[in-house]
Simulated scan of single mutants.
Amino acid sequence: MILFTADKDTSAPFFELELIKEKKFLHLPLENFQYRVDEEESGEIRNHMGEFAFIIHGNLRNAKYFVEWMKQNSTEEQVRGCVNIVLDKPTAKFLESHDIPAIQPREPAKPIDILEFMLRISKEGSTLYPTTENKTEEMPGLLKELQMPVAEFSVCEEVPLDEETLKDYKAEVGKSPVEVILLHNRSSYVRVKTAFPDLDLLSKTVVAGSLGTTELMEKEGLKPDYLAKGSWDSIAKVLNEI
């Protein structure tokens, strides 16, 4: 069994991959989010919705909270009038379930694929990018480098897990036959150590999802058994080999 702690929404594309369909996961998300917008920023975005040509939904989490904002602010028609672009199929399915047509330039799509798509179509206007407070994402930076106008709009924030949930998680880990620990990014390593202090990483097979995760572990004298290249696809390929 594989212990996996990523947020359910952002890891949704991972569970779509065929390579891991037969794998057994103990999925205990250690990231928790809630809807939150700054009222002044929200008003600015609402008043300028007609100026946006594109809306880029970087992941399912951001899309869900943006749709919540959309409904609260009655901006459905303006949102549907934009070109809504996504990186993955779960996000596209979610938007389409709310009657928002979504375009995925490639499967799987990377930020560069979205840039190429935007440059190919002749549509003028700025880009709206719903995001999570204090989370840095690659796409807005790429747009700014190309001097393409983009407005980042924070629609949610991370909040701590409640004590009861953590208690339940610890009980699940204690009674489950965990053999592999998947540390999908740097923060997951810190979260796993904090949430499960009695979990002996040295006695488990540890998969680091990226080089950054490996470097963080090595600073503390630990070394992963397997290293992926930072994408869900690369993580799935590594797990398939174990």
Rank of each mutant, 00 (worst) to 15 (best):
I121Y: 06
E164S: 05
Q147D: 13
S154M: 09
Y129W: 08
E138V: 10
S122K: 15
M139N: 00
L182D: 03
L182G: 08
T131L: 03
A151C: 07
M139T: 11
T165R: 15
L146D: 04
T132I: 14
N134Q: 14
I121H: 02
L182P: 04
K135L: 09
P160F: 01
E133S: 11
E163Q: 01
F153V: 03
E179I: 09
Y129F: 15
V180Q: 04
L166E: 01
L183W: 01
T127V: 07
L166A: 02
F153M: 05
L128F: 06
E172S: 13
E157H: 12
I121C: 09
L183G: 12
L182R: 00
T165Q: 02
K167I: 04
T131I: 08
F153L: 06
D168G: 03
E172C: 12
L119M: 14
L119Y: 12
E179C: 10
V159G: 10
G141M: 11
E137W: 00
L166M: 07
S126Y: 07
C156W: 01
E145A: 05
Y169E: 05
K135Q: 07
T136S: 10
E145H: 14
V178E: 05
F117N: 05
A171E: 13
L142P: 02
I181Y: 00
P140L: 08
E164C: 03
K175L: 07
E157Y: 06
L128K: 04
K123G: 04
P177F: 09
K135S: 04
T132V: 14
K135I: 10
L161R: 08
T132H: 02
G141I: 07
K167P: 01
V173D: 13
G174I: 09
G141R: 12
P149N: 15
F117I: 09
L161P: 01
L119R: 14
V159L: 10
L146K: 12
T136V: 07
L142S: 08
T132P: 06
T165E: 00
E137C: 11
T165Y: 03
N185I: 07
L128Y: 08
I181G: 02
F117V: 02
S122C: 12
V155L: 11
M148S: 09
G125V: 09
T132G: 05
L183Y: 03
N185Q: 11
G141F: 08
K144D: 00
T131E: 03
E133M: 06
N134F: 14
T136P: 01
D162P: 00
L166V: 01
V155W: 00
G141S: 14
T136C: 02
V180M: 02
T131Q: 09
L142V: 01
K123L: 12
A171D: 15
F117H: 14
T131H: 06
R120A: 13
D168N: 10
